[in-house]
Design a protein around this nucleic acid. Structure first.
Lengths: 241, 241
DNA sequence: TGACAGTTCAAACGCGTGTTTGAATTATGC
DNA sequence: GCATAATTCAAACACGCGTTTGAACTGTCA
């Protein structure tokens, strides 16, 4: 209806191609690659079933195209550092990383589908996961690892860095992976922008306190005491077998 | 071959029924309900394709049966408290809860399939999820919530309890949901029993330190200061937008 | 206007799925 | 031992999937 005056803003071919990518992003993000059907994608794109074959070749090729397309947009909208300079304090960079992660997870606009696609790859991997790990996840892991290493201070054990990084990032991934459960357990829970900021606050302070304690514990064995006022010695509970 | 002397230890019908449940547990746990095929389950059970229909009715009914069967076994092998008394210190109970959770996740014996089945339900829910939330997840959430509430001390904000519980449990779920990624990022990482204990140690101390800090922060606003030596005021970083 | 390439369309193909069938086989009870 | 029920089996059915097809449509240039 709206396209009467300018029947070809772009070539009609490019339009359907774009519509397929966007509909594909939506469907793949919602139900995953395996459960997504070409018919549903074409229906949402307003295109014929054969359009996927004509424009991309097959479903796999469309999926790769969708992944590549949203990779660029997601990184553009939510860079890892969210505008915080790399020489900013590690605490600030951690908070920026976590906010970026959460915003990506809870963003329901089309720009955020990439994060959901990747989360789905983690659980039901396709052949595209190997490339995703190298191109997207490894850089994120190194980025976070750098922050954690600085927070731990000194020359921390690589395994400690890894464990702490996992502990941090897992708190974000939880809200994406387990949304069906969370919404059933706490139906009243809404994820408004303010709630997301509270969530980022919580995860940031939760993680900072924990990492500080890891740092302290790790150093106890080697050095006298880090330059802190007076930390109450953290007890390490052990289940009495 | 071994069953020559006693061709019917049980009725042969009950045997195939049991074989189907166990094969179903394996296949459902490996690839999820949607991707599991009746043919593969029957092949592993050494049964005919029609056996599922004959003994259970359809694939959905078999799935529910599998879920119910392993529910009992998993709770028996890995109770929430792992033998730690409910009047034990909260720190000890937290560690028991986390060890139980991790052991369930990394246990590759058939007793542990239930945990994997539930984890899969979280991500790709079937109609069975509602019952699972009520029967399994809610009790776990309440169990953990009780521990966290005690660790926070006083009369903590329910939202704080929820956020901390999520932060704790997410660190365990991560290792189940993201194993494909973890194994690609760190191929050398193995999850031996000793590694799992180290992991439980890490998550326990990480969480304990973080919860303590939450407790401190939450009380600052209302009461003078909790009975602690002298806590260095935790700064809350904010990204300077 | 008319040939032509680019694009869309409804229909169908081949395949794998869960399910069903009716005969063959095995166990059970008199 | 034999009729009867319970169980297993190979084969097929109905359906949805990704993919392919050949005709119909659309816009372009001479």
């Amino acid at each position: 209806m709206a396209a009467v005056t300018e029947p070809k803003l772009d070539t009609s071919s490019a339009q359907t191609r774009q519509a397929l990518i966007e509909a594909g992003g939506a469907v793949f993000a919602e139900v995953g690659f395996h459960n997504a059907t070409v018919r549903e994608i074409c229906r949402r794109a307003g295109a014929n079933i054969a359009a996927v074959h004509y424009h991309f070749g097959d479903k796999d090729a469309l999926y790769r195209e969708v992944l590549a397309y949203y990779q660029g947009r997601a990184l553009q909208k939510y860079p890892l550092d969210l505008g915080v300079r790399p020489d900013a304090p590690a605490q600030e960079r951690l908070r920026a990383f976590l906010r970026s992660f959460l915003l990506r997870i809870f963003d329901h606009s089309s720009d955020a589908w990439h994060g959901k696609l990747i989360s789905r790859e983690m659980i039901d991997p396709t052949s595209a996961l190997d490339a995703i790990v190298v191109e997207r996840i490894r850089p994120q892991a190194q980025h976070l690892g750098g922050i954690v290493r600085e927070l731990l201070g000194g020359d921390p054990n690589p395994e400690t860095v890894r464990l702490c990084s996992f502990s941090v990032v897992s708190q974000c991934l939880f809200y994406h992976h387990c949304q069906p459960v969370v919404s059933r357990l706490f139906p009243e829970q809404k994820f408004s922008p303010e709630q997301i900021e509270k969530l980022a606050d919580h995860i940031t302070s939760f993680s900072l306190a924990a990492i500080k304690s890891c740092s302290r514990r790790g150093k106890e064995a080697e050095r006298p005491v880090p330059p802190k006022k007076s930390a109450s010695s953290p007890r390490r509970p052990r289940a009495s077998r």
